[in-house]
Design a protein around this nucleic acid. Structure first.
Lengths: 248, 248
DNA sequence: CGGATCCTTGAAATGTTTCAAGCCTCGTGG
DNA sequence: CCACGAGGCTTGAAACATTTCAAGGATCCG
């Protein structure tokens, strides 16, 4: 995160994907060295968003999808009645807006959970580019498929699992995403409020709070506010797999 | 449905998308008249599957995605513990397997809910083709985005809505999909068992049954087994929107 | 320091599940 | 052609997890 910001200060006007610390997570990973220029040509250095600021809004015309560079983003759908459903959390290196690719208007609203910088990929240019670079196209398909799978996984969590299982699963998901970024997988701070967690997991805030303290009393985690330490990852995995032990 | 079958009897060996009654729903809709040949070249006429037969299996190598021609398909994920989560139902003109595009192995299992015929699109060939036809690529992106949105919608249903709201939403979804095919939107037979509905909506079978009878007692629907008649579509929409009335 | 927001905790209320049983339906075999 | 069996569907009553309501405590920031 600190690296990404520093990088931006060095070359604030032109994106340089090949120097980005996230190039092994983001779109560049799918591209040959000598095609990187084409990608850099279409990338727009996004501005920095403060906590709570909208990156794009549901029902407005689709312009771009975004890669998180530092910070974190939450996406949510607002129903006609004004209810919010959080559909995802996005960390550095992850792509936001795939559910709106090639649609007319954004299917969700994306908001910065903290001070966040993003790279912006205008969809028409991205489409044009993927038409020329099969590797990139392949990668896009794969990420969109992955997004569908993630959402199915969420649906499964929501429909079949208890509050404890859902929260354990979220903690483990976050943990592995921190690890991918070479950060501590057991000691991190949650970018989102309990409220967002509750909304995302289909629970009441109070339930989330109760489960956190229950986990804490069992010695599985330690939590003070948004600071979390996973003390017993195996136990967490046991909670989620619970029903999933085949023999035994 | 009957039409699609008849068509297949006329030209059993080579697919002819331009004669297909579903061409306005399926991939051909994205393609210029004179590019249709390229699509027909890669389409494989799939065999006919009987009720319960597997079209593809989770964790086996990805070969193709499929368009339903007649009949219907359900997709589901099997957890390590053997639990099943139904992730979708697919009707004629709809694409199955988008969650596995460009992945190594299928992310779910697809089964025929009844006697079902499909068209098969080998993914490598499809990718190659979308690289050449921007319109088709655009359409693929759009359908995959749509699939993500559908799944988000499902997640929302599962996390925020009551049993009645979920079932009303499913009935309305089926209704509109029948209408798209120029079939009765109020009088149709469910392709899936109560069990599948329950699993899909994250409910117990008993609950599904109870809601069906409740709706029936309220005069909103009439149901005998899988035969369903929507007597009061407005009431159904009221059930789903319920919380979604903005003013009032 | 004050106000707002976020988080936690308790007790009662509630919708859904679970368990249990009976019924209906459809396909099969006698 | 009827009888049988199996699976699918329905219904009731008790059990349960989570929500809702209510209130207190912590934390952050101007």
């Amino acid at each position: 995160m600190a690296q990404a910001i520093r990088l931006q200060q060095v070359s604030p006007l032109k994106a340089s994907c090949n120097q980005c610390s996230l190039s092994n997570l983001c779109l560049p990973l799918a591209i040959e060295e000598n095609d990187l220029d084409s990608l850099e040509d279409i990338v727009q250095q996004g501005r920095i968003y403060n906590r709570g600021e909208h990156i794009f809004d549901q029902s407005t015309p689709v312009r771009s999808c975004f890669a998180v560079k530092s910070g974190s983003v939450k996406t949510s759908i607002i129903t006609e009645g004004g209810e919010e459903q959080v559909t995802g959390f996005f960390m550095p290196g992850e792509l936001v807006g795939l559910d709106s690719m090639s649609g007319e208007t954004y299917a969700c609203t994306a908001r910065a959970l903290e001070r966040t910088s993003v790279c912006e990929f205008p969809v028409e240019k991205l489409e044009e580019l993927t038409g020329r670079l099969p590797e990139l196209q392949h990668h896009m398909y794969r990420m969109m498929s992955q997004e569908i799978q993630n959402s199915h996984q969420l649906a499964m969590l929501l429909s079949k699992n208890t509050a404890e299982e859902r929260i354990a699963a979220l903690l483990l998901s976050l943990s592995s995403r921190f690890r991918r970024r070479r950060m501590s997988a057991t000691n991190f701070s949650l970018p989102m409020a309990r409220n967002d967690i509750a909304n995302f997991l289909g629970l009441a805030v109070e339930t989330v709070s109760r489960v956190f303290t229950r986990f804490q009393n069992q010695g599985i985690i330690r939590a003070r506010g948004r600071e979390v330490e996973l003390l017993d990852v195996d136990a967490l995995q046991l909670v989620t797999r619970d029903f999933a032990r085949q023999g035994q």
